[in-house]
Design a protein around this nucleic acid. Structure first.
Lengths: 165, 165
DNA sequence: GGTCATTTGCAATTTTGTTGCGTGTAGTAG
DNA sequence: CTACTACACGCAACAAAATTGCAAATGACC
């Protein structure tokens, strides 16, 4: 990475909605995440808090190196970010996304609201999608003999602007 | 890779069904794929044919290095396999799968029948799943302004045997 | 068979992710 | 407030996956 742009990367559009109580909700999410960390017998360390804050403030799925560009994470080693995100994933605090370019991206998942993404095949911009897979399908997978079933789902398409060009 | 086993890899179970006309169907899939290649103005080269044959014969999603272990691909360079698979993906001849371990896997997709997978979170075995996402959802994503919408969908769970242990 | 653009193989490199180990720090007990 | 201890962090080295540039080989067309 280091250079500046992202070679294999995925650019993000942040379509921020004004939800009124944004600030308060972010704080609530942060403290509930910190409680989850303590409940798991883990420590409230500076890197963990910084990573949570970054993920909660800008909730796009970010790669490890995208995350490390936030000033909040100054001085935090790349290895630490990998380890923290892996731990958070196991706690269910973050969700890992694969956009098909060989890089994992992570987003905050402590706030219950589960969603997926559409990625433009041309410009690689991403957008959130509220659609999800019907419960009946998950049930049928469970019946194949699997417990604790989760899923990944991403949509790919050509966005309006790229279609024009 | 090279060693023998797969370090970050995903083991596969091949539950082969006897569908009667297997041989004939495989040949039909191969020649229709070759036609697609010609239609795209590309050449029928030995590596491309070998890769298609391997993918059609053993239709599990394979990583590049798993594919290269097939004797059909003896002497074919890893770079070539990457390039061929990327080209095939663009033609819609193969489908790329991400099982969350940082490696892309590919399977033949020229035969219309589209499916997904369940991956065991513990032993990483995979199995095919015929369930797919309802068309209505794809339509709604299209309405967000995207053309040519495709998707990836994978299920993760704990299989029977791993549950026992 | 000869020509030429496409495709391949090789070598080198980049990017992503992991491991081992000494140091630091959060949490706790005194 | 200080000291202790185990968890967590940072650094350096490593490993695997994927990409790039370029010369040589090969398939398509004449």
């Amino acid at each position: 990475m280091s250079k500046e742009g992202q070679s294999r990367g995925v650019r993000r559009v942040q379509v921020r909605k004004n939800t009124g109580t944004v600030h308060g909700r972010h704080e609530a999410e942060l403290s509930s995440a910190l409680e989850a960390i303590e409940r798991a017998g883990m420590r409230r360390t500076q890197p963990r808090i910084a990573i949570l804050k970054a993920l909660i403030a800008e909730h796009g799925p970010f790669s490890v190196d995208e995350l490390r560009e936030f000033s909040l994470l100054d001085g935090v080693d790349r290895v630490t970010v990998y380890r923290v995100l892996t731990a958070f994933e196991e706690l269910g605090l973050v969700r890992r996304c694969e956009f098909g370019d060989g890089t994992s991206r992570y987003e905050f998942a402590g706030g219950g609201h589960h969603h997926h993404h559409v990625i433009c095949k041309k410009c690689r911009k991403t957008e959130n999608v509220d659609e999800c897979i019907p419960d009946a399908i998950i049930q049928r997978v469970r019946k194949l003999g699997y417990d604790d079933v989760s899923h990944t789902l991403e949509f790919f398409g050509v966005c309006k602007t790229c279609r024009a060009a």
